[in-house]
């Protein structure tokens, strides 16, 4: 087994450097920005995004459409529920799952779907202190995610540059609901939109440096796709074939 110190020594010898040395600051990387600078930048990003909201919404919708999202702009949460229900209806789906993202608690989905005869499953488990039992519950949730036809989630960030939505999975926000069903519907407000990937990673880095460390950041841009057979573009491989974004407000 290679010992870490041996490995690092090999690297140092290869580079011809000694262990104790100063790493010269290089502003090509953002690494040398202090925690405060990052936080300050994060605040500025939020302020700037708020100011340029209309422009950012247009750019986001343009890029997201280009990437294959079906965009639904609605005025309020009731209309959002209607849009989601229409998609579910169109697919004749009966196995529908949603995450427990904050925004979804404002959307009256349960009642709207109930009227269609669809029981909406919420992708959360009751955590258990017993490790085996907790695993059991997670596995059962995983099974249900794989069996769902439509998955509905919230969105934590939306990136105008690329038409990307980003989510940080956490308690209540499953990783799989946006992945395993054939249809994914994301629900968001324009406040989620930021200009570019630069801001996205400045904000997530700020989270991290502030101790709010998440297990994963998922960037999703349109449907699942491949070009592995004779370079033909095929939509829907392991992830959703059809993706929707409902923008409320």
């Amino acid at each position: 087994m290679a010992d870490k110190q041996d490995f690092l020594r090999m690297v140092r010898t290869s580079l011809g450097v000694s262990e104790r040395r100063d790493i010269a600051r290089d502003d090509a990387t953002s690494f040398f920005l202090s925690k405060d600078e990052v936080s300050q930048a994060a605040d500025d990003i939020r302020a700037d995004a708020a100011e340029r909201r209309t422009e950012l919404i247009d750019e986001f919708i343009h890029r997201a459409t280009e990437a294959g999202w079906n965009i639904h702009r609605v005025a309020n949460f009731e209309d959002a529920a209607e849009e989601v229900t229409a998609v579910v209806r169109e697919h004749g789906a009966t196995a529908v799952m949603r995450s427990d993202h904050d925004i979804l608690n404002s959307v009256p989905l349960e009642s709207a779907l109930k009227a269609e005869g669809v029981d909406l499953e919420i992708a959360v488990r009751e955590p258990s202190d017993d490790a085996d039992e907790d695993l059991e519950r997670r596995l059962s949730l995983r099974e249900k995610s794989f069996d769902s036809e439509v998955g509905i989630t919230g969105v934590d960030f939306a990136v105008a540059e690329t038409g990307t939505v980003a989510m940080e999975p956490r308690a209540g926000s499953s990783r799989l609901v946006s992945l395993t069903p054939e249809v994914h519907i994301g629900v968001m407000t324009p406040e989620a939109i930021i200009p570019s990937l630069d801001e996205l990673f400045a904000l997530t880095r700020d989270h991290h440096l502030s101790g709010e460390h998440k297990g994963m950041i998922n960037l999703i841009t349109g449907p699942s796709r491949t070009a592995d057979i004779e370079a033909n573009l095929i939509i829907g491989v392991h992830g959703p074939r059809e993706v929707h974004l409902v923008i409320v407000g």
């Binding site: 308690a171 998440k214 994963m216």
Partner: peptide, 26 residues
């Protein structure tokens, strides 16, 4: 690589599933 502005997915993994998370590896 592909000429896309971004790929369909970029997955940033920060270690195993965090306590409370609904899914993800232990």
């Amino acid at each position: 690589a592909t000429g896309q502005r971004i790929s369909s997915y970029v997955t940033v993994v920060n270690g195993p599933r965090k306590a409370g998370e609904e899914d993800g590896p232990d």
